[in-house]
Design a protein around this nucleic acid. Sequence first.
DNA 1: AATGAATGAGGTTTCATTCAT
DNA 2: TATGAATGAAACCTCATTCAT
Lengths: 208, 208, 208, 208
Amino acid sequence: VAVTAGTPPHPAAPAHRRRDAQNTRDRLVRAAVELFTTRGYHGTTTPEIARKAGIAEGTIYRHFSSKEQLLNELYRAALKLLEGAIQDAPPVNCRERLAAVARAWRAAAIRDPAPVRMAFFLRAEPILDARSRDAARRFREAVAGIIASGKAAGEVRAGSAELWADVWLGLVALVLDRTVSGDWPATHTAPEAVFDAAWEVIRDTARG
Amino acid sequence: VAVTAGTPPHPAAPAHRRRDAQNTRDRLVRAAVELFTTRGYHGTTTPEIARKAGIAEGTIYRHFSSKEQLLNELYRAALKLLEGAIQDAPPVNCRERLAAVARAWRAAAIRDPAPVRMAFFLRAEPILDARSRDAARRFREAVAGIIASGKAAGEVRAGSAELWADVWLGLVALVLDRTVSGDWPATHTAPEAVFDAAWEVIRDTARG
Amino acid sequence: VAVTAGTPPHPAAPAHRRRDAQNTRDRLVRAAVELFTTRGYHGTTTPEIARKAGIAEGTIYRHFSSKEQLLNELYRAALKLLEGAIQDAPPVNCRERLAAVARAWRAAAIRDPAPVRMAFFLRAEPILDARSRDAARRFREAVAGIIASGKAAGEVRAGSAELWADVWLGLVALVLDRTVSGDWPATHTAPEAVFDAAWEVIRDTARG
Amino acid sequence: VAVTAGTPPHPAAPAHRRRDAQNTRDRLVRAAVELFTTRGYHGTTTPEIARKAGIAEGTIYRHFSSKEQLLNELYRAALKLLEGAIQDAPPVNCRERLAAVARAWRAAAIRDPAPVRMAFFLRAEPILDARSRDAARRFREAVAGIIASGKAAGEVRAGSAELWADVWLGLVALVLDRTVSGDWPATHTAPEAVFDAAWEVIRDTARG
DNA sequence: AATGAATGAGGTTTCATTCAT
DNA sequence: TATGAATGAAACCTCATTCAT
C-alpha cells in the first residue's frame, strides 16, 4: 500500500483524468517520502521534490497547501499504515502479538520502505503539527497497550509499560533500519534474533 | 569537559587575548550544539546560532570556515569525548566494562548534555564529512571491540559483535535520550534497569 | 540586434508566454550590460542589476545560473555580434575590408552601444571562462586573418599580423570609446581620420 | 623607484623603527598595486592585500585611511612617476621628445612594472577621487602639450592635439602592456616598430 | 489539473573597517 | 607600530510560494 495521504483534489473527476491525477500525486508523494526520509525536512527542497517526481514546482501546491502540510500528511499516513499491523495482530498473547507486529512491519519495509521510513526515521525536527504529534502518541500507546495487557497477564516484567514499549520499539527500529537500507534482505536471519532479543528484554524472566 | 572542538585560531596569542577568544568560541560552540541537536543541521540557521551565542554572524567564520565544518568539528569532538569513557573503563570483564561505559556516558549527559546529544542524536543527514564518518566508524568499533572480547571470553551470545554492539548502543541511547531531555534525573532508577536489560539481551544465556 | 545571449529557458513555451519571458530577460540583459561595462564585474552587484532591470533579484537566477555565467554569456554574445561585421565585410582588399568593419562597428555602437561596450571595454578581470577566452582569441584571429591576407597581397607592412591587428584594434577601440561615450556623434569627422590613421600605421608604405 | 605614496606615519621616528615601518608600508604598497592592477579595485579584497603583503589586516589602516584612499594614493604616485619622464625629456623637437618619453616609460616598465600598470591599466571604475582625476587630466595634458608644440612647429598633422595625444598614448600603452606582461623583454624589437608607427600616425605627412 | 516564471524573504558567507591589546 | 578578533552591512544565491496562462 502506498502512502497516498489525504484526499484527491477532485474525487468526482472522470476516471481517465483521475488516473492521471493519481499518477501525479503518487509520484509527488513517493518523491517527497524518499527525500524527507533521507535528507530530513529542512534538507529537502521543493524544487528537488518536483524534479524527482517529474512534475512542475507549482503542482505540489495543487495537492498540498504547503511543504509542512505535505510532510505531516505523509507522516500520519505512514503511522496509520503501521497501526494497521497492530490491529491485525492475532489477540492470543503478548509475545505472539508483538512478534506478529514486528514481522508485519518488516514485511512492509521490504515491500515498500517509504512509510516505514516516514514513521521511524524522521528526525523529529519540530515540524510535526498537533495532529501528527497526537497520532505519534496514539501509535506508541497502541504498542504500550499490548505490553500493558501482557503485564496484566504476567508475561511482562515489572516497570512502566511505556518504557518497555520504547525499549521494544528501539530494537525493532534497529531491524527496520537495516531492512530499509537493504542490509538485511528478506532471507536474513538476524531480524528474528533481534526480535527474540527484544522480547527477552521485556518478558518476565521470573516466570517461564 | 566542554565540546571545544578543533584548535583555537591563534594558539600563540597572549593569555589575556586567548581568554577572550576562548570565551567567544565557547559561546559559539555551545549555541551551535544546542541548536544542531534540537533542530537538526538544516533546521539551524547561522543568524540563530549567532543570536543565541550573543556574537555577530560574521564571527562564526573567524572560528570555523563554514557551517558544515562547524558541525563536523563539534561532532568529532563529541565522539572523542565519549570515546574517553571507553578507554577509561576498567578492563575486568565485558559486563563490567559496558556498565562502566554506560554509567560514564549518563554521568556526562547529566553534567553537560551537549556532546552526548551531538554524538547520539544528530540525525545523519548526509552532512558528515569523510573524517567524521571515519570517527563514527571507529567509535562503533570501539564498542564492538569490547563485545568481541566478551564473546571470546564466552560472556556474550553468538552472533555478530557489531550487531550486538548496535543493539546495546540502541538501548543505551534510549537512556541517554531520556537523560538529556530531563525526564530521568540523576536519581532515577530506570537507567539501571535498562542498562541491565541491555546486558541481558546480549549476554550468553546458556552460560551462567 | 540586441545582446540577448544564450537560449531562452523554455524554447517550447507558448508564444504569449515567451513574449513575457523575453521581456524580462531582455530587461535583465540590458541592465547587466550597462552596469558591467560602466562599473566592471566586481563593481556591479546583483541587487543593482535587478533594480535597474525592474525585476526581483531572484529572477536573475531563473535566466542565468550565476552572475559569472551572466557576464560570460553577454560577453560571448557581444563578440559574436561584432564578428558578424567581419564576415559581412566585402572581400575586395585589406584596406576596404578593415574600413568596412570599422564603420560597421561604429554604426553598431551608435545604434546600440551595449555589445560594443561588452566586447571592447570589459576590463578582463580574470572572470572570463574558457569558452569566453576562446571566443576572444577567435575574434582577434579573425581580424589578424584579414591583415595576414593583406600582407600576402603586399598591402601590409612587415611584422607580425597579430601585432598589427592589435595596433589597428587599439585605434579602432579609441574611436568606439568616444562613440559610445557620446563624445563623437554620428556626424563627427574624427572617426574617419583615426580610421585612416589606423590604416596608415599598418599599410606597406614602401608600396603605394 | 617604488610607488611609496603619501608620507610615512611618523617621519621623526628613530631610524631602525622607520626602516621597519618603511618595510611594512612597502610590502603593503607592492601587494596592493599588484592586486589592483590584475584584479581591479573591486576584485581585490583587503584580506588578500594583507595576506600577500604578509601583514595584518588592521595594519592597512595605519597607513591609509581606507581602501579607496589606498588606491588613489597609489594611482597618483604612479602618474607622478611617469610624469617625471615627460619633464626629463630633452626639449629638442616633438618627435624626439615623444620617443624619449616612450623609451623612458618602457624602461620603467621593465625595472618595476607596478607604477606603469597603475597608471595605464587601471580600468577606471568610478573610484578615482577628484584629485586623481585632476592628476589624470594633467597627465594627458602634458602629453598633449608636447604634441601641441609639435603642431605649432609644423611637425604634427592637423587635428586636435588631444586626439593625437590619445592616439599616441593608445599605441604606447599597447607596448607597455606587452612589456609588463613579459611578452616583450628588453631586447625585443617590436617596441621600436610600434613607437615609430605611433609617430607616423600623428606626424605631418605633407611635410617630410 | 498542471505549468513554470516571477517573487522577496532569508540563507550562508565575505568584506571593509574598528579597537583593545 | 602592529595585531587580529570582532563586527554588521551587504554580497551572491536558493527557496517556498503565488498566479496568469
